[in-house]
Write a protein that binds this DNA or RNA. Sequence first.
DNA 1: CGGCTTTGACCGGCGC
DNA 2: GCGCCGGTCAAAGCCG
Length: 320
Amino acid sequence: MEFTSLLNSSLDLNSKPLRFIDESPPQVKQQVLESSFIGLGRNGVNVKEEKGALIEELNRVSAENKKLTELLTVMCENYTELRNQLVEQTSKNMMNGGVENSNAASRKRKAESSNNNNIDVLNVGASESSSSDEESSKKLREEHIKAKISSVCVRTEASDTSLIVKDGYQWRKYGQKVTRDNPCPRAYFKCSFAPTCPVKKKVQRSVEDQSILVATYEGEHNHPQPSKVESNTSASNKNSNNLGTVPCSTSVSSTPATVTLDLTKPKAVQQESTNGRGTLGSPEMQQFLVEQMASTLTKDPNFKAALAAAISGKFLQSNN
DNA sequence: CGGCTTTGACCGGCGC
DNA sequence: GCGCCGGTCAAAGCCG
């Protein structure tokens, strides 16, 4: 793993002491240590005792450093394993299809869901319809729109009570309902960027975690993403429904999948989370992971203690 | 003044 | 047929 080496280099604070102890000939060590204490005006016994204590301390710190390095290696291995599992799971979900909307417990929504799963069968068998061509084509269009359903989970600040999911498109709210299976109201949005755009969006807070907004997109946009257009034309944005030049890429896709965005995290992270496959190994993502690991490590009191010991060891060595 | 949000009313599908 | 429920409409109000 690439960032393992990065972290190793930054964490190996006792690399010099290690080399000093392990690689230098014993005579040189003795000379250096003794000469270091010549100017201190101490007697020989004290100097020898202190030297022994320091070497012992250095050995201890070096061993601790080695342990930490091993621990980090294990962490990195675990991370790699988890990442592989995530990628595997994501690709499985993409292949299986189907909308996993835990909030949609109603009968009707169940029926819709089954329709979506069998959309290919419906399209193939559409010719058996006895209605007129106009009606059947209309039905097909509706089914096609329904087929383009994707569910997106967006984590927001708990204090944020609005049902706004910033995804780069312009939405007009046309209704709000409290549904039976969820005490939180469900908001209904239509894409307002293009009058002919058939895309609809439903936004509702998750029952389990109310800081998570579940946005369900129906249909496919027949126009470019407004925020991209606006960023190209430097137009001012009156509406708040986009993230400027860095929108959450939650555009409707034909492959039903649930994506979780964390709006409480930096935008770059959101993008990586949204993109999911293929970008986990990108330099930006690795940089973020390195920062994340560093942040996690610095919050660990044990790590802090070990780091302090290592630094104090280094200081002692440099003073000597 | 135009566009957006709010919210109560209405509609249609479904189960009993 | 009735009631429930999700989805949509549209009038009123708000805001820049």
